[in-house]
Design a protein around this nucleic acid. Structure first.
Lengths: 339, 339
DNA sequence: TTGTAGGCGTTATCAG
DNA sequence: CTGATAACGCCTACAA
C-alpha cells in the first residue's frame, strides 16, 4: 500500500526533469533523444508508474468519461442498449459513468448535476420529459448532450428508432397475412415513442383502406417499479378485454415484447391457439422472444447498435441526429388469418 | 457555452478570498460569519457555481467513484446485480464506472489499469480467473477490491452466494417430491460457482442415501458471445441426451434458469408433460421464470441484494466477506413423481 | 473571522 | 534536446 509513483518520482529516479519525463510518457510528438527515452521508460517500469488521470484531466479539461442516464437496466431492452454503449466506449477509449433515473425527473436533474461536477465529456440521456433547466445548464457549460431513444424537445442531437415506421411494418405484416381486425396492445401514451407507434399503426390501417377502430386501441395499464412484470400484466389485462368483444380482432400488435408475451399467455390459457386462431406480433426483439411459447414474431429495434451509434454521434458530432430502421423478425406467433 | 465558474470567480465577484469561499461552499465545520456566508451563497447562485470534482479529488485523493467489472450486462442476472450496485451507490453518494470484461482476462487486466488511473476508490470484480498481477497491483496501491459473485483465490473481501447450499436445496426439493433419479443439467466446470453447485447436488443425493450417478451429470456445452442463447441450446442438448437413457431421470436440476428453460422446451416438444411426467428446477430466478411455459420453479440468488451488499462491504469494510442464503421459489415446473 | 500560500499530478510555454 | 515554471481548481495549514 505504497503511494502511487508520480512523474516527479520518476524524474528523481532517472535524474531528468519532470518535463522530459512527461514528454516521453504522454508520448507527445515532442522530440526526445532515444537514450533518455529509454532511461525514462526503464524507471517508469521499475516504479510501476501509472498516470494519474485526475491531474491530466484537470490540466486538459477532458476526462474521457461519458455519463449515461437510463431509467433502469433490469429491462432487457435497456441492458442491450447499455451494452452497445459500453462496448463502443471501450473501443474509443472512453469510460461510462452509469446512472439510473428510475423515470424520476428530479433524480434525473440530480444525475445531470453530478455528472457535470465530474466534468464528463458528454451525456447520453434517455428521458421522457427531462428537467429543461438541468439540460440547458449542461449544454450551456459546453457538455455535449444527446437525447437517446426518447426524443426531447430541445436543441440537441438525438438518436432513436423510427417507432412510427416500426409500428407500420408490424401492422402491415399482419395485413399481408389477411388480418383485417387488428388490435393494439398498448399502454399509457406518456412517452413520444408510444404516441409514434400508435400513429404508425393507424397510418398502416388507413393506407390499407381500413378505418382505425378506437375500441381496438387498448391503452390501459399501470406503471410499477418491477420492470417486465407489470408489462406482462398489462398484456394479460388487455387480452382479457379483447376476448370480451365480438367480433374480436384476429391480429394483435403490442407496444413491446413483454406485453405481447403477457397477452399470449392470456389467449392461450383461454383456449385460443397461436398462430392458428390468432396472431400476435411484439416490438423490441429482446432475447426472451426466442423462449416464449410460441416464439414471438417481432420488430427488431437493434438496441445494441443504437447504443454504439449514439456514442459515436455524441463524440464525432457528425450525423448529429439519426434513427435506426427497424426490421421484421418472423418467428411463430403470426400466421394467415383463419375465417 | 461559457467556462464554468470557479472558486476564484466567486471570490472576485463577492470581494472575498478564495479560502473563505471554499469554506462555505464545501460546508466544512469551519466558522464563517453569517453575513459573509450569505454573500458567498448569493454569488455562487448567480454564477451557477458547480464544484469541479477533479480539483477536489486531486487534493483529497478520493473520487467517490467505484469501478464495476462484469462479464456482460445483457445477461439478466448481471443486469440485476448491477442495478443493485448502482442504486446503492446512488444512496451513498458514489458513482459507478462500468466495464464489460466479456470474460477475457487480458481485457480485465486492462479494465483494472484504467480504473486505477482514474483513481477509483474501489473495484467490484466478477471474474473467473483474473490476472493476479493486475489484482495485486490494485491492492498494493491501496485501492479496495472486492471479489463479487465468483470467489477468487486472493486475499481480498468476497461477496457471493452459497452455491453449494443452493444446489442442495434444489436437489432436496426434488427429493421431497419423491424423485430418486435426478439429472444435473450442467455446463463446463470452468467456474468455482459451477463446481460448488455440482458438489451440493452430489451431497444432497448422498445425504438421502442415493449414490450419485456420473451418467446423470451432464456437463457438455459451448460458450458463445450471445448470452442466453447458448445456454438455452445447452439445455436442449442435455435434455436430448437424457431422453435417450432408460430409465431416464424424473427430476432435473439446472445450472441456471436459461438452461432449465431450454431443457423444458426439448422435453415438452418430445411430448413429455411438465410437471406431470417430469420436474425441472432452475437457478437464479431471473424475471423470465414467470414467463416460461410452465413458470419455472427455481432457487433465488437475490442478485439485486447481492449488488447492494457488495458495495456496502467494499465501503464499510465490516463484515468483509459474506454470502447471501438462497431461497426456494416454487412455481409450476416441479411436482410429485409419477411412477 | 478572514486571508495567504503551498501543493495535489499533469501539461505546456518559454528559455537555455 | 532538456529544464524551469506557471497554470488547471481545490483544500488547508498557518498567519494576520
Amino acid at each position: 500500500m505504497s503511494r502511487q509513483a508520480t512523474l516527479r518520482d520518476i524524474a528523481r529516479h532517472c535524474g531528468l526533469s519532470i518535463a522530459t519525463v512527461s514528454r516521453v510518457l504522454s508520448d507527445s510528438d515532442y522530440v526526445v533523444s532515444e537514450a533518455t527515452r529509454q532511461r525514462v521508460l526503464a524507471s517508469a517500469e521499475q516504479l510501476h508508474y501509472m498516470p494519474n488521470e485526475l491531474g491530466k484531466s484537470l490540466k486538459t479539461s477532458s476526462t474521457r468519461d461519458i455519463g449515461v442516464i437510463l431509467p433502469n437496466i433490469t429491462n432487457p431492452y435497456y441492458a442491450l442498449l447499455l451494452q452497445g454503449i459500453t462496448d463502443e466506449a471501450d473501443r474509443q477509449g472512453y469510460h461510462v459513468l452509469l446512472c439510473s433515473s428510475h423515470r424520476n425527473a428530479p433524480r434525473e436533474a440530480d444525475n445531470i448535476s453530478r455528472l457535470l461536477s465530474k466534468r464528463v465529456d458528454g451525456i447520453l440521456l434517455s428521458s421522457i420529459n427531462p428537467d429543461p433547466e438541468a439540460v440547458r445548464r449542461a449544454v450551456s457549460v459546453g457538455c455535449r448532450l444527446l437525447a437517446l431513444e426518447q426524443p426531447i424537445p430541445l436543441d440537441c442531437p438525438q438518436v432513436g428508432f423510427d417507432y412510427r415506421l416500426g409500428a407500420m411494418m408490424a401492422t402491415e405484416h399482419l395485413l399481408s397475412l389477411g388480418h383485417r381486425r387488428i388490435g393494439f396492445l398498448g399502454a399509457p401514451l406518456d412517452r413520444p415513442s408510444r404516441r409514434m407507434m400508435l400513429e404508425g399503426y393507424r397510418a398502416a390501417l388507413t393506407n390499407a383502406g381500413i378505418a382505425p377502430n378506437p375500441d381496438y386501441e387498448m391503452l390501459s395499464g399501470i406503471e410499477s417499479e418491477r420492470p417486465g412484470i407489470y408489462e406482462i400484466e398489462n398484456g394479460r389485462e388487455s387480452a382479457q378485454l379483447f376476448m370480451h368483444m365480438s367480433p374480436m380482432p384476429t391480429g394483435y400488435i403490442a407496444i413491446n415484447d413483454m406485453t405481447a408475451i403477457g397477452a399470449m399467455r392470456a389467449f392461450t390459457s383461454a383456449g385460443l391457439r397461436i398462430p392458428e386462431d390468432i396472431s400476435v406480433i411484439g416490438f423490441d426483439n429482446i432475447p426472451y422472444c426466442e423462449l416464449s411459447a410460441p416464439p414471438l414474431t417481432t420488430i427488431d429495434q437493434h438496441a445494441y447498435s443504437l447504443g454504439s451509434l449514439a456514442l459515436r454521434c455524441l463524440l464525432d458530432r457528425d450525423e448529429p441526429s439519426s434513427a435506426l430502421p427497424p426490421t421484421l423478425v418472423e418467428r411463430c406467433s403470426t400466421g394467415p388469418v383463419k375465417e
